[in-house]
Design a protein around this nucleic acid. Structure first.
Lengths: 217, 217
DNA sequence: GTCGATTTCTACACCTGGTATACATTTACA
DNA sequence: TGTAAATGTATACCAGGTGTAGAAATCGAC
């Protein structure tokens, strides 16, 4: 029915162009004046589209910005499923994250291309956008739990707990990197520290919090 | 200035009554017809208060429901700070959670009083309310990280990572219990399983995910 | 090409959550 | 009892989001 790989057809191509045009117009305006200072009506006008049409392409204002992250939702689950034999899920995820740092994947929070840096900064200072990203996090967690359950022969609760911990750590690392870059650090400056932190974090996941000290210094 | 412990004063008392009255009217309506099917105007009318006044007491519609959970935001942090000497933070939190199960604290998701069960059910099926609860989770995570950093002599990143993991696990457990009760199970039926699950979860936190299997069964 | 069916876009009106303003009422306290 | 400060109210307004009905474009078949 929906041949995406084939000739997409004029209709499909036009749809994608409109989609991209609206999103680009929106992000340009948001970066210029701030997310909350631009109304969807103004975005629609700038994109030369009616408000109704805008909402046909994007279910909510926030999606004008965060739709780019939708692909990454299921990334962890895919990594776990595609891992080589005899590799533990955690090892696969650590490899993948370290690779993301190396490749400066926005997923890892370590991309400082000016446009991406500006985008991150805007997201970080706009609560509504953070909330929307948290939703991606939830579904990422759910799909990861499923992947763990199915490929690691793990009881349901264990899979859900492990997924929750992994995603929480992942999110903490990425947010930390993004925050540092947003406030001026370059990706190259941050890289070594980011690697250290990631390794520390995955070690903590692997070995547990057993070593958290008792009271006192 | 603000003597809460003393005679509260007429103004203060009246304010609290109004606060409670609005919230009760709101929850009654929401339980009857569903959160999204009731407008704030209707709540205001039912509480015999103007819409403007309602928003003076509750910053957003969702807060009419979730303000009851606000106290628990910093609970984990308090538990960690108040733990006895020579007790690890994790042990204190485990004790506290198990105690919450015993006491059927709504915090643990294991309270089946009809009104609370109905409330939980409504929250679980209303995305906007879950989102609002997630915000509490975030600030709970931040305050817990601070408590760990200050009382366990832990580097900042470690504290944040540990807090993220702990809160994620806590949330998973509580949500699991609440979901089961919402779909009919009684608290007494669930209790033993809830304890087992909690102990398993805290053991996982303590010992790490090292034992997550490689591929295959 | 051209015709009809289907999809997509648009204009417009409407609902709801939330806020600003300006005025009335109540409380606290001398 | 009178007055300043705090609270409550009416009204109008803004922005996000949806329903509806019709106009326009696209597609496939001939």
């Amino acid at each position: 029915m929906d041949a995406v790989t084939e000739q997409p057809g004029l209709r499909e191509r036009k749809k994608r162009r409109t989609h991209a045009a609206i999103s680009e117009a929106a992000i340009a305006l948001f970066l210029e004046r701030g997310f909350d200072q631009v109304s969807v009506a103004q975005v629609a006008e700038a994109a030369e589209v009616s408000k109704r049409t805008l909402f046909a392409y994007f279910p909510a204002k926030e999606d004008l910005v965060v739709h780019r992250f939708a692909d990454h939702e299921t990334e962890s689950a895919r990594v776990v499923r595609a891992r080589p034999e005899r590799m533990t899920p955690l090892a696969a995820l650590r490899e993948h994250f370290l690779d993301g740092l190396r490749r400066r994947d926005p997923f890892s929070g370590l991309n400082d291309r000016p446009d991406i840096r500006a985008l991150f900064r805007m997201i970080l200072e706009t609560p509504a956008l953070i909330v929307r990203l948290e939703r991606f996090r939830s579904t990422g967690e759910r799909t990861l739990a499923e992947a763990l359950r199915e490929t690691a022969d793990t009881p349901d609760l264990t899979a859900r707990l492990a997924a929750a911990q992994i995603v929480a750590v992942h999110w903490t690392l990425a947010l930390d990197n993004a925050t540092r870059l947003a406030s001026g650090e370059t990706a190259d400056e941050r890289y070594a520290g980011a690697v250290d932190d990631a390794e520390h974090a995955f070690a903590l996941l692997e070995n547990g919090l057993r070593r958290l000290p008792r009271h006192g210094s």
